[in-house]
């Protein structure tokens, strides 16, 4: 039993006497224990949101002031009260149209995410596929989507299909680009290590490559989800009998400024809610990454 005696200083002393970084590890462990998670995230949310809330209130104040003083005619900028009245009077119809746009956006986004990730995986694993697909993807990206919309209407009619396709087309590119970047960001030495472990390609993908790609992929998804809203609305502009884009066109034709503003607000709400949902997903899926940033709305940890 001479060995433990002789090696004790090295073993016991090393984690503590290491250097500054090991104290952060201890602190991190303590921090984890001390504060309750819920309280911490509530505080973080509060500290992250009071500034933008203040700015928003300020903007509302200016809006109200401009209309109350009659600086701009009411048919150009309606008063907040007039917009509120529209919400109150029309909410069943508005809700129905919002649900249509929301549905188109979500379906389009989910399809774009799946297609984007699958395409990225194929491109990363097969150089031949990359060489043949990449120019096409780029081509699809540089065509103005608004220009495709009328063709889609001709092909698929006035239903949901052309809007969903447009949302997919517009949201697809950021997903592919971020997923490819993410899958490529894996440490090549880790892949070499994995091959000395005799791991199959699938296992390497599942346990190393895909998780590594998630931080990149999640930022791509955040961009994509906001673009998907645009795609759906543009699709509705070109030819639709329901959805917020359709209502917006009607309101514009009737010079109904309060309705215009109400629809705009609803569209932004869709975008913001979906963005926050993806952000929430990010925190659930990659907590190790989210906990290291604190510059975004919900990432206060």
């Amino acid at each position: 039993m001479a060995a433990p005696q002789q090696t004790a200083p090295g073993r016991a002393g090393s984690p503590q006497a290491q250097d500054g970084a090991s104290t952060t590890a201890i602190e991190a462990l303590e921090r984890r224990g001390n504060q309750s998670k819920a309280r911490k995230s509530a505080l973080a949310l509060l500290s992250a949101s009071w500034r933008p809330a203040l700015v928003l209130a300020g903007l509302f104040g200016v809006w109200w002031l401009v209309t109350a003083l009659g600086l701009v005619p009411a048919y150009l900028i309606p008063s907040p009260a007039a917009v509120w009245d529209v919400f109150v009077a029309e909410w069943p119809q508005l809700l129905q149209h919002t649900m249509v746009t929301l549905q188109e956006t979500v379906v389009g986004f989910v399809l774009a995410a799946i297609l984007g990730v699958v395409t990225a995986v194929i491109m990363v694993y097969s150089p031949t596929a990359e060489k043949s697909i990449y120019p096409l993807i780029l081509f699809a990206q540089v065509i103005p989507k608004i220009a495709i919309a009328p063709i889609l209407v001709v092909w698929f009619g006035f239903g949901m299909a052309p809007k969903i396709i447009l949302a997919v087309l517009i949201a697809f590119f950021p997903v592919v680009v971020s997923a490819v970047a993410g899958l490529r960001s894996v440490d090549p030495e880790l892949l070499e290590l994995s091959s000395t472990m005799g791991a199959s390609r699938w296992k390497t993908f599942r346990k190393i490559r895909f998780p590594t790609s998630l931080p990149h992929l999640m930022s791509g998804l955040k961009v994509a989800v906001t673009l998907a809203v645009t795609g759906a609305v543009v699709g509705e502009f070109v030819g639709a009998d329901q959805g917020l884009g359709f209502v917006l066109l009607l309101a514009s034709g009737n010079l109904n400024a309060p309705l215009l503003f109400a629809v705009l607000i609803l569209m932004s709400i869709i975008g913001i809610v979906l963005f926050l949902l993806v952000e929430l997903l990010e925190r659930i899926v990659i907590p190790w990454h989210a906990s290291r940033r604190n510059n975004l709305v919900l990432a206060g940890g």
């Binding site: 250097d19 970084a21 090991s22 462990l29 190790w288 290291r292």
Partner: peptide
């Protein structure tokens, strides 16, 4: 973990560790 003196850090994430650890 015991042999290399990592006891107590089993659940620590890499970025919480020093280079030596």
């Amino acid at each position: 973990i015991e042999l290399t003196g990592l006891t107590g850090f089993e659940r620590a994430l890499p970025h919480e560790l020093s280079g030596g650890m």
